[in-house]
C-alpha cells in the first residue's frame, strides 16, 4: 500500500440485521482525489459510506484508513483519523446555533471557523441562528463547513445536492471543486452525473452491493450501456 492511500477497503460485507447489503466491495481513496459514487436507490451507496465511517461496521473484509486497521474501529476513532462525514439529510444539530455546530466540530488545523465563513459568507450572517432555523442550502453549507473544521484528509458527502434549488446546488458543486483544490479527498454521492463528472477523478457504480464499474468519467462516458443499465440514463 502506498502512502498516498487514505482509505483502502477490500471485500467489505455489511449487513443490516439479517439483510446482506454489501457483498464484498473493494474501494480505494487516494490523497486529494475526488471519487463519485453512483448507483440506483438501495444499491448500497449509503451503506458503503457508513461502513467506511464505522457507523455500520462491516462483518467481513478489511478496512485500512491512513494505514491503520479500522475494520472494527469506533466512528469517533475513524473520524479522528481524518475522515469527515456530510450525511444525507445533513445531520445539523437543530438545538445548537450555527456557531455551536461549528465550534463543537472544530479541531486545530488550517481550516478554522473564519476560513469556513470566508468560504460560505451566508453562514457568517446566520451564526446565532439555530441549526434548525436556516434554509436547506445553508444547512448543507454548514454540514460541509462542519466537516471542514475537523481538518480532515477526506470528506464523505452523501446526497450532496438532494432537495436543493439549482442555484444552491451550483454553489455546492463549486464548493466540492474548492475542497478538491484545497487537497482534501472526497467521496461524493449524488444523482447529477454531469456535475459529478466535472469534478470527479474517478467514478464508482454500485449495483446490489457490488462494484459494477470503476473508472474515469471519460471511460464511463464511452460505455453508454453501463450508464443505461445501472443509472437508467
Amino acid at each position: 500500500m502506498s502512502d498516498t492511500t487514505l482509505i483502502e477497503a477490500a471485500g467489505l460485507h455489511t449487513y443490516y440485521g439479517a439483510s446482506h447489503v454489501l457483498h464484498g466491495i473493494d474501494l480505494t481513496l487516494r490523497r486529494s482525489e475526488t471519487v463519485a459514487l453512483l448507483g440506483r436507490n438501495g444499491m448500497g451507496k449509503t451503506t458503503l459510506l457508513r461502513s467506511l465511517l464505522g457507523l455500520t461496521p462491516p462483518r467481513r473484509g478489511s478496512l485500512r484508513i491512513a494505514g491503520r486497521d479500522m475494520a472494527s474501529a469506533r466512528p469517533d476513532r475513524i473520524a479522528r483519523a481524518g475522515v469527515a462525514y456530510v450525511p444525507e439529510g445533513r445531520g445539523i444539530f437543530p438545538t445548537l446555533s450555527v456557531r455551536e455546530n461549528l465550534l463543537l466540530a472544530a479541531r486545530p488545523g488550517a481550516w478554522n471557523i473564519e476560513r469556513v465563513l470566508g468560504t460560505f459568507p451566508r453562514l457568517a450572517q446566520r451564526l446565532d441562528h439555530g441549526g434548525g432555523q436556516i434554509s436547506g442550502g445553508e444547512q448543507q453549507m454548514l454540514a460541509i463547513g462542519r466537516a471542514l473544521v475537523t481538518n480532515p484528509s477526506c470528506i464523505l458527502i452523501d446526497e450532496a445536492t438532494e432537495g436543493l434549488a439549482p442555484l444552491i446546488a451550483r454553489d455546492i458543486w463549486a464548493t466540492v471543486a474548492a475542497i478538491r483544490a484545497a487537497g482534501i479527498a472526497t467521496i461524493v454521492v449524488d444523482r447529477n452525473l454531469a456535475a459529478l463528472s466535472a469534478v470527479a477523478d474517478r467514478v464508482v457504480i454500485l449495483a446490489k452491493g457490488l462494484t459494477v464499474f470503476a473508472g474515469t468519467p471519460a471511460e464511463l462516458a464511452a460505455q453508454p450501456e453501463i450508464k443505461h443499465r445501472h443509472l437508467g440514463i
Binding site: L55, D76, Y85, P87, G91, F93, T150
Partner: peptide, 13 residues
Amino acid sequence: AFNREMVQTLGID
C-alpha cells in the same frame, strides 16, 4: 441528545 451518530463522526467519544 439529538443525533448520537453525528456527534461520533465529528470525532467525539
